[in-house]
């Protein structure tokens, strides 16, 4: 098994498939020079076809601290959770960079919001509530891309936090 944080780390096929589920709840954190974390909710994601690059979308106003920190140190952690099963996976990276979103990304953000609203509707959450949660104040979407260098299972239970490798 490839060790986490190894330069050879690559996402396993199952984990990549999980990360491509459209209605995952996504929250990411970076940290300041003095190791104080800053966290923001992502408004969608895009995993590259070779599974090597993860891109998260944020509202720039919301994620101000996170964007500032990754500019300085590139450190990022992001948790992806499936509300219906509590299955969760955390990715880490050290080369996070903010970039302008692609033209097609705004469609991804809209589609993600619709999928997440639909999914949570089944659990009694009002669509307007979840819609408000995922709608940026203005069109200030920013994309943050990083190379996942480690992955950890975070499904609740005693095994939460265990590193997962590519051979899974």
């Amino acid at each position: 098994m490839t060790k986490p944080n190894s330069p050879d780390f690559a996402l396993g096929a199952q984990d990549a498939a999980f990360l491509r589920i459209e209605h995952l709840s996504i929250v990411a954190a970076s940290r300041s020079a003095d190791n104080i974390p800053f966290m923001s909710r992502a408004l969608g994601s895009r995993l590259s076809t070779d599974n090597r690059k993860m891109t998260l979308f944020f509202s720039a106003a919301d994620a101000h601290g996170l964007l500032e920190h990754i500019k300085n140190n590139g450190m990022i952690a992001a948790v992806f959770a499936l509300p219906s099963t509590h299955q969760a996976l955390q990715l880490k990276g050290s080369d996070a960079k903010a970039e302008k979103p692609l033209k097609s990304d705004s469609k991804l953000v809209t589609s993600y919001r619709q999928a997440f609203v639909e999914h949570l509707k089944k659990f009694g959450y009002s669509p307007s509530l979840i819609g408000a949660l995922l709608t940026p104040e203005s069109e200030d979407i920013v994309a943050v891309t990083f190379t996942p260098s480690a992955a950890f299972s975070q499904t609740p239970g005693p095994n939460a936090g265990h590193a997962v490798g590519p051979t899974r």
Partner: peptide, 13 residues
């Protein structure tokens, strides 16, 4: 969100 002394952030539900 928390942060390890080596500067690796961590985020969880």
């Amino acid at each position: 969100a928390t942060c390890a002394p080596d500067g690796t952030p961590n985020v969880t539900y």
